[in-house]
Amino acid sequence: MKTFSLLLLVVSPLSIVVNARSNIRDAPSTTVDIQDGQTGVVMVVPPRRTDTGTKRIPDADHPFIAPGPNDMRGPCPGMNTLANHGYISRNGITTFEEIIEGTGEAFNIDLTMGVGMAALNMLARGNAFVNKISIGGISPLVPPLPGQIDGPETRGIAAHGRGEGDASMTRSDVHIGDNRNFNQTLWDEDLEVLAQFGDDGPDGPATVFNLQTLIELKRQNLESDQVLDPEFAIPIRRYNLVFGTTGLATKRIISSFFMNQTFPDNWFRAAAPVLGGPVPGEILAALPEWVPGHNDENGVFVADPQAPAPFNISLTCATYWDNFANAVPATLVNVTGVFKQNVDMLEGLLFNASGCAEPVAPAGPTNV
């Protein structure tokens, strides 16, 4: 029986193969850069971990503590779980380095994958000058970009449109419901699919999420939301799911993450660093009727234009183009000082991962 984990961590490139060494800074710069009353913080790619075997998670230093009323939480069960256990800041305001280190320690996400996830989210929804990002919504702890070049607020990864999008397993589309918090009705529908297609496991019959279950779940999510959401959209960057961590994706394990946003009892991280896998591609291949697209004014689903040459050579390269053309704000092109150092590093990491022959400058809309 083929087994794998279902945990959706964050929206990120479908395939991350980062040549991180060429972008690592051995230590933060001591240069002080103040812009618009904010002090710049130079980002540094953390060193590759040497402790990469399996271990029980959480350990005694990371107990579950439910979030308080001012703590940020968002649509990603993985990030919420990390915050609830203190693998990233419990208030939900985190940094580039902390995302990489937290996902590495708790989920054994390989450095190269962690770097790509953190870089994209920081460019699209964080403040890359002060190195802060909210895993939920707007927070006074994450100021607007200097000069408010992306609007008067930094919105966090829960904001719709750049990374967060439609057809979630456990969150409503933003145009028809709550896109941030767990939706029991959607989860009950997911469990009906599991009961029909799942494998038998240690917790009983039809309790293991196999590949067919995931295919049918995604088919159900796409078909339902396309009908219910008049503004439904699934751009190519939204096709990016990250799977991996445990060896067996059971109803008990996945329910713990999705419903309670805590690690299951007696849970162990992966025995080797996780660097993607074939499952997302296999899901896409099984759903050829679904291509990147959106509903038109009549509620009819229409395909998006393909990425232009030379970015149409692969799904990964097209995704890279889509992120920079539509999700990373164009105003990042003209930043200076430490801000530019950080943006250049993050852009370089993602270009290295893309497989594209040439880079794309940020060109996305601002204040969205």
Results as ranks from 00 to 15, higher is better:
188 D>H: 07
148 Q>S: 14
256 S>D: 14
264 P>N: 09
119 A>E: 04
218 K>V: 07
97 E>G: 03
268 F>Q: 14
98 E>N: 01
84 N>F: 00
335 V>S: 04
346 L>C: 06
63 P>I: 08
170 T>P: 03
194 L>P: 03
252 R>K: 10
56 R>W: 10
317 C>L: 06
198 G>I: 09
266 N>R: 10
278 P>L: 14
17 V>G: 09
314 S>F: 03
162 R>H: 12
41 V>W: 02
19 N>L: 04
146 P>E: 13
148 Q>E: 15
48 R>H: 07
109 I>E: 00
105 E>T: 01
202 P>T: 07
170 T>N: 14
70 N>W: 01
145 L>A: 12
112 T>C: 03
92 G>M: 00
190 D>N: 14
294 H>A: 12
41 V>R: 05
276 G>E: 04
248 L>V: 15
319 T>R: 07
223 E>F: 01
305 P>H: 03
118 A>R: 04
255 S>F: 08
77 P>E: 01
189 E>C: 06
2 K>P: 06
22 S>M: 10
85 H>D: 01
324 F>W: 06
346 L>I: 06
69 P>V: 04
8 L>T: 09
154 T>E: 15
51 D>T: 13
274 V>R: 08
268 F>Y: 15
200 D>C: 07
328 V>Y: 02
92 G>K: 00
327 A>F: 03
77 P>I: 02
55 K>L: 13
325 A>P: 00
